[in-house]
Design a protein around this nucleic acid. Sequence first.
DNA 1: ATGTTC
Length: 475
Amino acid sequence: MPLDLEPLGPNRYVLRRQGPMRVDAVVYLNAALRQSFREETALQQLADAASLPGVVSRVVGMPDIHQGFGLPIGGVVATDADTGVVSAGAVGYDINCGVRLIRTNLARLEMNRERLQRIMRAVEDRIPAGVGKQSRHKELLPRLSEVLTGGAAYLVEEGYGVPEDVEATEEYGRVEGADLAAVSQEAVERAGQLATIGGGNHFVEIGYVEEVFDRSLAGAFGLEEGQVTVLVHSGSRGFGHQVCSDYAASMAGAAARYGIDLPSKGLAAAPIDSPIGQRYLGAMHCAINFAFANRQLMTHDIRRAFEEAMGSSWEALGMAVVYDVAHNIAKFERHFGRRVLVHRKGATRALPPGHPVNPRRYLHTGHPVLIPGSMGTASYVAVGQPGIEETFTSANHGAGRVLSRAAARRQVSREAFHESLGDVLTNVANYRAIVDEAPQAYKDIDAVVETLAEIGLTRKVARLRPLAVIKGEGD
DNA sequence: ATGTTC
């Protein structure tokens, strides 16, 4: 079927319900993004998601939308909590992939090259980066069941952080409903990657607040111009990947038994109230807690690294967690007067000011929304605004790819890669190992963030500029 | 995203 986007007011386009679609798909693009939009496959995937049983209201495509497994990255699909389905593919392989922002009281002007390199080395000494890397926190592996049920909150109790860390984490760093019996032995074996960055677009980045757009909100988040920040982007590593693999396969095998006509294999789904649906949710909740724990442990290690490199305590360096958001997750929420399961893949929850589910400290502002750009480009802190209910209170999660990894390797030369990084330091010496993450492979982060801000769904709070980025090699 | 082809 032809997938024509029809304008629906400023920065909004609609793919009208047609064929097997049960609801419309709404996609958010500003003029610049619409002009270069070539995401036919992603649109087909949105149409497929709009065909799932029990889908509610509309499916949503964020400005950073691009092709994913089943549901596109930058996709939001909500299903009725009582009569709908849950889809492992719609959450994706990296369950609770997310971003954590740590502030410091260091000034950018203090951060010369030598100091940055010292910090980078100290971080690298503590946090393994790259595909398949194993944990250096072996002491926690015998306590995996506590990590899977207790998440970041358990680690704080064990001394790997302070209570303020989880007060500034989505879900306070721990979700209920983790079912260890629903996790395969293969997944358990891959849990040895706890406290590692991973590969691909994951990173630990040292940067600074380049510009504040809203002084009042920035103040509430503890941010000011010129301040050094640390951004952590990682998820549930091989553990969550295995949970997704296990349940995407079992949901695909069981769909016929449940009378579900699957729009695509990647969107394999099971009724929420079915045994497989319930077991997936139990395993997904384990992976959510694993990822919160992962980012908490990296916060602990980053604080130690700064202490070593800077010669003072992390408390004296003011290294508080600003916030920690998930952007690959499914959650039960209330929208449009009903209880729904919101699947967000490459989409960040963005609760508006006053929304009762905000963490207490951000109740009156709305919680920070953390939107990392690609390596070498800016990242943003934003906040949801009241109109954002139309996206099930969701905002974009990053810049979004424009080039596949293979295309980036073909098209981006060594010179172009180094040129695009400018003065940003990186730990990866061999550009071939990281060129698929080149800024040229991503959309323009400014345009992506502007798309929702221009129509008042979000408000920009601050823009961060990278100084040094630590990434893992993909292979 | 990912012990990236069981």
